[in-house]
Design a protein around this nucleic acid. Structure first.
Length: 118
DNA sequence: GTCGTGACGCCTC
DNA sequence: TGAGGCGCCACGA
């Protein structure tokens, strides 16, 4: 997907921009989809640097928790945005089994599973 | 060239 | 569930 001219950051931006509204995914998943397996930290760095209109609030840690200090302004902003698009945020965390982006292998598997409260 | 740091992730206790 | 440890890569001092 990544042509020779663009940087890993460009690939990351494309992946994040492609996350559907009302869905969330993890840094690791974004990195993998961008062709950068294991570069989760790079994703975080890119999100913090870029000035573009990205749905960065849809990117969470692998356990579904927001990767920002609970008391930071950015944290509150992320929670506000997620709730605005229908994502339930409880104690700074999101249930990936319910809102995870079906693109990832694990996400898809969990999504297809007959949940306890399906 | 090395060290410290970070919007991460997986494993183990 | 939470905390600690180690690995990973990019960057600035």
């Amino acid at each position: 997907m990544m042509s020779a001219t663009d940087t890993p950051a460009d690939a990351i931006v494309r992946v994040v921009a492609a996350i559907p509204r009302g869905r969330v995914t993890s840094y690791g998943a974004v990195a993998a989809r961008a062709g950068l397996p294991g570069r989760a930290r790079l994703v975080g760095r890119v999100l913090g640097e870029t000035e573009q209109d990205l749905p960065w609030q849809r990117v969470l840690r692998s356990d579904g928790r927001i990767a920002l200090p609970p008391r930071s302004a950015a944290f509150r902003e992320q929670v506000r945005r997620l709730r605005a698009e229908g994502v339930t945020v409880t104690a700074g965390r999101v249930d990936l089994r319910r809102f995870g982006w079906g693109g990832g292998d694990l996400d898809a598997a969990l999504w297809a599973m007959p949940g306890p409260r399906a």
